[in-house]
Design a protein around this nucleic acid. Structure first.
Lengths: 256, 256
DNA sequence: TACCTTGATTGTATAATTCCCAACAAACCA
DNA sequence: TGGTTTGTTGGGAATTATACAATCAAGGTA
């Protein structure tokens, strides 16, 4: 009653299409959503006229359209945080020779806003715009520990070291708050470690996290704790910069 | 009749929200789409339950949701071209010290699928996932000249050198076909030049374009034509690789 | 070639859904 | 505190989307 049926069906169609790289025909789509072929056909046509899907003129199958790239991209790039953070990411890479990223919290995940890759041939690269779990990444732990402290509902296991217990995670967050930074010790990917620190906004509220990540061989636990200082300085500097530039914009920049 | 009203309205809402970084209230949205407040409210609620928008719990305003980032990203990253091309981009950067990109055609624009940045402090960086016009970029010219040769409807001027005349553009495309590569001589951005060549797929059809770009001071016209050979070799090699690997993948695994 | 299967689109009547109007609730501001 | 703006909910009316069936197009097979 409060949900508009035809709109919801269209959105479901998009969701389904996300998983199908080669596209999907109207008939199969209709079966998946459990509606009639004709209805599906009209839904897809509407989505197509707005650029949200594209129909191949030969196979007649529908795939996600470029408009979605634009929308996603605009969401990523328009946050002022991203532009401000770039020089600090570069600086971090120069200082540590490791990959540096910034991220924000998006619903119950970590959303990577930007990244600067290290030059070493062995490096950890997380695509800009990709998402990762909160509970097993350094950036995610920072976003919880220094934010609203709200834990994710499910904590999936990725490696033997992944924390899947809420209480254990809370202890880790507590420790992160004490020491001012969070680490990920091969909890998401084998042989990958990370350190991250919070980024604060105008009024001292958490707006994101900045960190570095690299292969375990180079980024040993000992070195991680040394580098935490470097990363902290970057986070500080960035937070300061954000606080300075606060008179620029009259409205408050709500970060998604 | 063939367009579903409520779905179309929802999509329009997303389009409008794209331009409003700070989000938008239901009332203003309703005015923009020319519908009732209550209708807008229900539309937005539906969009929100599927993650396409988010409602700030304080300001009650709606902003684009993280689901759109996922969708856009999945569209970008799932194309096998991107993964296959990455080593060749790196190689190009190593050989030329300039930024390298690959792109495909998306409706009437160039869509940058991937990019590897140069190490020089002065460099040209085009964000992955961004779009650019066809008529004034080397990648765009390649996509037209070696593809279906369909010109864009409008040709906006960006610099004094931008080609805005269809006949002139057709001549350029003809020349590109003859020499096997296209260039952009400060036609989109001042002081930026590019060279690009086509990438062919399994059956020899055009699937994308690969190229490099850099500041005019380094990338002189003379050097451009020399580097065209290097870029061509990369395009060749990548096309060969795509042809070889055609039996590999029944389906590609999604990225977390 | 002709036949058959699979899949996409269009027409149309029905009825279910969405829409508008209005009232309500809540926050914001002066 | 009272006035103003904004978001959410109810309910009746009717527009709108839906399902069914027919048509159209394509691809495969004998």
């Amino acid at each position: 009653m409060s949900e508009i049926q035809s709109l919801a069906r269209g959105l479901r169609a998009l969701d389904i299409l996300e998983g199908e790289a080669d596209g999907m025909g109207v008939t199969r789509l209709a079966r998946r959503i459990d509606i009639d072929k004709s209805t599906a056909s009209r839904i897809m046509k509407t989505l197509a006229t707005y650029g949200y899907v594209e129909q191949s003129s030969e196979t007649r199958r529908y795939t996600l359209g470029p408009r979605l790239v634009r929308l996603g991209q605009s969401l990523l790039t328009r946050t002022p945080l991203r532009d401000q953070a770039r020089p600090y990411l570069r600086e971090l890479v120069a200082q540590t020779q490791e990959c540096a990223h910034i991220a924000v919290r998006a619903s119950d995940q970590v959303l990577y806003l930007d990244q600067v890759e290290a030059t070493a041939s062995l490096r950890v690269s997380t695509g800009v715009g990709t998402m990762a779990p909160l509970h097993c990444t350094a950036l995610g732990k920072v976003l919880m520990a220094f934010g609203d402290n709200r834990l994710p509902e499910r904590m999936e296991r990725f490696t033997p070291r992944t924390i899947t217990d809420a209480d254990t995670l809370r202890m880790h967050l507590e420790q992160a708050r004490r020491q001012g930074y969070a680490i990920d010790d091969e909890e998401f990917s084998y042989d990958v470690r990370c350190v991250a620190v919070p980024i604060y906004g105008l009024e001292g509220e958490l707006v994101g996290a900045i960190g570095i990540s690299g292969p375990g061989a180079r980024l040993t636990l000992a070195r991680i704790h040394d580098l935490a200082l470097v990363v902290s300085r970057a986070g500080q500097a960035l937070s300061d910069r954000l606080a300075w530039h606060h008179e620029d914009q009259p409205s408050d920049g709500g970060v998604a």
